[in-house]
Nucleic acid binder design. Structure first.
Lengths: 199, 199
DNA sequence: TGTACATCAGTGAACGCGCGTTCACTGATGTAC
DNA sequence: TGTACATCAGTGAACGCGCGTTCACTGATGTAC
């Protein structure tokens, strides 16, 4: 036996993993832009420069790809939002999070943005594992908001903040009228405002 | 000419309209429960006790049905929420709206609930007319919140409130864990709280 | 360095299926007289 | 009241198409000697 037991010869060991990542990245973009169901495996693989049969050498099913896609998309979204929060001085961190999330840039680029804001109602009807993954990712977003709020010495509820952010962004993408769409973004951003005394 | 010009003989004039309404009501339930794309015309018509060919005697396309479904669903949702608001004494009207919307009952019954909370990300990718209809309906929801806030003599932003409501309900439907799901509902309900003085 | 070989990532035909839409038709309903 | 007829809501076969998944295969890559 030329190879130690339990090990398999792997040539070009990186290649398989690179292809896999290419599929995930392609799917992450297209799912967020077009939805999950409308992006077929064959069509997706051809966008990645591959043929559809090879898909199942990397993923047991489309559902598993959706799960990986969700996690991969959120890693980037969380990193991006973290950077915005870290760059902001204490007292303005929640504001920075909310302003970054509810921006025209984010609204206009769902393919590079938050997976939840792009796909939440479709994902809510997916299999248990997909919903679990998305639940975890939304939880990470809540944790991010919680840290920002704590650093600000403020007292908003992070789950309220995230609910407002996702809702406002989703609505702003439905609304075609540019002015009205921006009003929903602006309304969502108000969730970051410090509490005001009642009149 | 036995009939006055411009008029066409119609026998059983109600029947056509009743069938049409049956299709809309069936679609309104199933779209909200299962999504739009997964509910095919043939499958939908058979749920209504009809055959698929007849669909196009009532609607030019599936898209037109979606528009009607959106409006019909919202009429009921708005009426239901209006009743809750009207039954609440001034000062508690926004609270009544938010509590009714972000209830476990609503979360558990998407097929009878808010069209936006059930389908917003799928609808955001639909044709212009669908998005226009949904924009209008969300606007009506905002108007409802605005009236409730005014009657309360309060000062929340109605668009912020609606964004939070839709976001929180959508998230609560993704989350499988019952306790965590309720936490998102409860967090969303906090949007109705009167502003607190800063510490 | 050159040859024989093993590996396995990727290929593409095929599967059964449901999609939205069209269209020639059927047959129950109501009217005319 | 009875018969002939017009209406038209609803029927169901058919269209071309894309879906997720399977599987026997090809051929480029790296190893062994």
């Amino acid at each position: 036996l030329p190879y130690p037991e339990g090990e398999v010869m792997r040539y070009d060991a990186q290649r398989r993993e690179r292809t896999r990542q290419l599929i995930v990245e392609t799917a992450a973009k297209r799912f967020r832009a077009e939805g999950i169901a409308p992006v077929g495996i064959a069509n997706l693989m051809s966008t990645a420069g591959l043929t559809h049969g090879g898909f199942y050498a990397h993923f047991p099913s489309k559902d598993d790809l959706v799960i990986e896609t969700c996690r991969a998309a959120f890693v980037e979204t969380l990193a991006y939002l973290s950077r915005a929060i870290n760059a902001a001085p204490p007292g303005t961190k929640l504001r920075a999070l909310v302003d970054t999330y509810l921006s025209v840039l984010h609204r206009n680029n769902p393919d590079k943005g938050c997976f939840a804001a792009a796909l939440i109602t479709e994902a809510a009807r997916s299999s248990g594992p997909v919903r679990e993954a998305l639940t975890e990712c939304i939880g990470a977003l809540v944790a991010l908001a919680k840290d920002a709020i704590r650093a600000d010495g403020s007292d908003q509820d992070p789950k309220t903040v995230i609910s407002t952010m996702i809702g406002a962004l989703a609505i702003s993408r439905v609304v075609e009228d540019s002015r009205l769409s921006k009003e929903y973004l602006a309304a969502g951003r108000r969730i970051a405002e410090p509490h005001q005394p009642p009149r």
